[in-house]
C-alpha cells in the first residue's frame, strides 16, 4: 500500500499539472487578499469575523487541491494510463485508496502554500494599514489548522468524485458547479441543508461564524463524511465497471 501511494505521488509530481495548479492558486489567493485587504475600509477589517474572512482567503487552496485530486484520477482515464495502472495493481480498491491518500497529501502541500501565503499577506496588509490584530491565539490556530485539514480533505473528495465520474471535463465541471453554484444556492435557499455542503462545513471548521453554519466539530465530521462517502461511491463504481 505504501508502495502504491509512492507511485501515485510520483504521478502527481511527474507532470506539469501540479505546478500549474499551484501557480494558479498562488495568483488567485494573491489577487483576492490584495483586493479584500486594500479595498476594504479600515472599519470593515476590524472585527474578529472580518479578519477571519481576510486571513482565511488561503482556504481557496481547497479548490485547487480538489482539482488536483480530480486530475490525478481523470488524467489516467483520459490518457489511458489507467490500463497499465490496473495491470500492475489489479486490486482496484488499493489503487483508489492510494489515490485518495496521495491526493490528501498533495492537498496538505496546497494548503500549506495557500495558507502561508494568504495569512502572511493578510497580516502584512493589516499591520501596514495600522489595523489592530483582533484574533487571539486559539482563533489563529483554528483558522490555519482547520483550513489545512479541510484543504487536504478536498483532495480526497476530488479523487473520490473523479473515480465515480471518470471523465475529466465532467469531473472538473461537476466539482466547480457543486462548490460555486449548487452549494451557495442551497445554502441561500435552504441553509439547514446547505450547511452540510463541504464548502460550508469547511467554513465552520475554520471558525467562521456566518449564521446557520454547523459547529466546528460537526463541520469536521461532515467533511470527513463527504470524503469517505465519495471514496465509497468511487469504489462501488470501480468494482462494477470494466476498465475502459
Amino acid at each position: 500500500m505504501i508502495a502504491q501511494v509512492r507511485a501515485e505521488l510520483l504521478k502527481v509530481r511527474s507532470t506539469r499539472t501540479t505546478v500549474g495548479l499551484l501557480l494558479g492558486m498562488v495568483a488567485l489567493i494573491l489577487l483576492f487578499v490584495l483586493l479584500t485587504g486594500l479595498l476594504s475600509s479600515v472599519e470593515s477589517l476590524s472585527t474578529v469575523e472580518d479578519q477571519r474572512q481576510l486571513l482565511g482567503i488561503g482556504a481557496l487552496a481547497g479548490v485547487f487541491s480538489a482539482l488536483a485530486g480530480v486530475l490525478l484520477v481523470t488524467s489516467e482515464y483520459r490518457y489511458g494510463t489507467i490500463r497499465p495502472t490496473i495491470l500492475f495493481t489489479p486490486r482496484r480498491g488499493r489503487v483508489l485508496a492510494a489515490k485518495v491518500v496521495a491526493a490528501t497529501l498533495a492537498g496538505i502541500v496546497f494548503g500549506a502554500v495557500g495558507e502561508a501565503l494568504g495569512w502572511a499577506l493578510g497580516y502584512a496588509i493589516l499591520s501596514g494599514r495600522g489595523i489592530t490584530f483582533a484574533l487571539n491565539g486559539g482563533d489563529t490556530v483554528q483558522l490555519v489548522l482547520g483550513a489545512l485539514a479541510g484543504i487536504a480533505l478536498w483532495g480526497a473528495m476530488g479523487a473520490g468524485l473523479a473515480t465515480t465520474l471518470r471523465n475529466q471535463v465532467g469531473g472538473v465541471i461537476t466539482l466547480l458547479a457543486w462548490g460555486f453554484v449548487v452549494s451557495p444556492l442551497l445554502f441561500g435557499l435552504v441553509p439547514s441543508v446547505g450547511r452540510f455542503m463541504p464548502s460550508y462545513a469547511q467554513d465552520s471548521v475554520i471558525g467562521l461564524t456566518t449564521q446557520h453554519l454547523l459547529t466546528p466539530a460537526a463541520g469536521g465530521v461532515v467533511l470527513v463524511g463527504w470524503a469517505v462517502l465519495l471514496a465509497a461511491a468511487g469504489l462501488a463504481v470501480t468494482a462494477q465497471r470494466d476498465v475502459p
Binding site: 508502495a3 507511485a7 510520483l10 504521478k11 511527474s14 495502472t85
Partner: peptide
C-alpha cells in the same frame, strides 16, 4: 522514464 518508474514503484 517516469512512466516506467511510477508503474514499477507500485510493485517494488
Amino acid at each position: 522514464r517516469d512512466h516506467l518508474r511510477m508503474l514499477g514503484q507500485a510493485v517494488g
